[in-house]
Design a protein around this nucleic acid. Structure first.
Length: 287
DNA sequence: CTCCAGGGGCGTA
DNA sequence: TACGCCCATGGA
C-alpha cells in the first residue's frame, strides 16, 4: 500500500470513459484494475490523494506510466476557440480523465469485440474471454484472470470460443492470434513505427478497420493524434459542427480531444439537450 | 417484445 | 470511391 498525491486524476471518469474495460468500482468506493498481468486497487482519499495497493517500485515501473501521470493536459484548454461551447463544456466535464497506456494486443482484441456492442456488453464479452482463456492468478487472496495472450488463442477453432458468445467477431479474434503466430503482425515493432505506418499495419488484420485501428493507436500505442470516429462522435460532429470537425486546430492531441467529446457526448449531462454550438461555428474557418 | 450498440467485410455500380 | 447489406448477441 502506498499513497500518492495526483492532481487532475479522476477514477470514475477514467473507468467510465470507454477506453478501458477492466477497471471497475468495488463495493465501498475503491476501483479495481486488471492490466499488464496484474491486479490493482485504487482508493480516492480526497484532496488529490490516492491509495494504490502496490509497492512503490511497482507503481513507478508500471502504474505511473499506465495512467499517463507525467502528461500535462492543462494546455489543451487554451487551444479551444471561445465560440466552441460544446468543447469547452466537454473538457470541463471530463477533466481528470487520462489517456491510458494499455497493451496493444489487448486493445486490438477488445476493440474488435467492441464493434456493434454497447460498453456493458463489451465488458461482459471480455470478461468471458479472460475467464475461459486467460491465466488465473491470485493477489492477496483475490482470484483474477489475465487477458489471454495471443499464444493462448492460437490453434483454437470458432467452436472453441463459442462459449464466449462473441458472435461474428470470433473469426476476427482467432485470425488476429494467428497473425501474431505467423509473424504477419509484430506488436513489439508497432511501437517504433510512425502513426501512419502503424495504422496501415493494424488495418491489415482481418476485422480491423479505420475506427478500431485508431482506438488501438490511441489507447494501446499512445498516438494521441489518432481520432476514432464512432457512432457517438459522428452524432456529435453532425449536431455541433455541421458534420465537419475542425481537426487541424488540435494537431498532436486530437485523440485526447476526441475522448472528452466522447465522454461528455454520451453523458446524461449532454444528451437530450439542444446543440451547444451555434450553427456554422466551425465552418467559419474553412471558408 | 423492439431497438440499438465505441464497425467491418464484401459485393455492386 | 461510394453505397447497401449482412453479420450474432446482449442490454435497455
Amino acid at each position: 500500500m502506498i499513497c500518492k498525491k495526483i492532481p487532475d486524476f479522476d477514477l470514475l471518469k477514467i473507468a467510465d470513459s470507454g477506453q478501458c474495460f477492466r477497471m471497475n468500482p468495488l463495493p465501498g468506493g475503491a476501483y479495481s484494475v486488471i492490466a499488464r498481468g496484474r491486479y490493482l486497487e485504487i482508493t480516492a482519499l480526497g484532496e488529490n490523494r490516492f491509495q494504490f495497493s502496490c509497492t512503490e517500485n511497482e507503481f513507478g515501473e508500471i502504474w505511473a506510466h499506465y495512467f499517463d501521470l507525467s502528461a500535462d493536459y492543462s494546455r489543451i484548454r487554451d487551444k479551444i476557440p471561445s465560440y466552441d461551447h460544446f468543447l469547452h463544456q466537454a473538457v470541463d466535464y471530463g477533466w481528470g480523465m487520462r489517456i491510458l497506456n494499455q497493451d496493444p494486443w489487448e486493445m486490438t482484441i477488445s476493440f474488435i469485440i467492441s464493434q456493434r456492442k454497447s460498453i456493458p456488453a463489451i465488458k461482459t464479452a471480455i470478461e468471458s474471454l479472460c475467464t475461459k482463456f486467460g491465466d488465473k492468478k491470485v493477489s492477496e487472496g483475490k482470484e483474477y484472470f489475465c487477458f489471454p495472450s495471443p499464444e493462448s488463442l492460437t490453434g483454437l477453432a470458432c467452436s472453441d470460443i463459442k462459449c464466449c458468445a462473441l458472435g461474428y467477431r470470433d473469426k476476427y479474434i482467432l485470425r488476429a492470434a494467428q497473425s501474431v503466430q505467423s509473424g504477419d503482425i509484430r506488436f513489439e515493432l508497432l511501437r517504433d513505427m510512425d502513426e501512419e505506418s502503424a495504422r496501415t499495419t493494424l488495418k491489415s488484420l482481418y476485422g480491423v478497420g479505420e475506427k478500431v485501428a485508431n482506438c488501438i493507436l490511441l489507447f494501446g500505442l499512445h498516438h494521441t493524434n489518432a481520432f476514432p470516429e464512432d457512432t457517438w462522435i459522428n452524432r456529435i460532429v453532425d449536431a455541433e459542427y455541421g458534420g465537419i470537425f475542425p481537426k487541424s486546430l488540435y494537431d498532436g492531441y486530437l485523440g485526447i480531444i476526441q475522448q472528452y467529446m466522447f465522454y461528455f457526448g454520451r453523458s446524461n449531462a449532454y444528451r437530450q439537450k439542444a446543440p451547444l454550438n451555434s450553427p456554422g461555428c466551425s465552418t467559419v474557418l474553412i471558408s
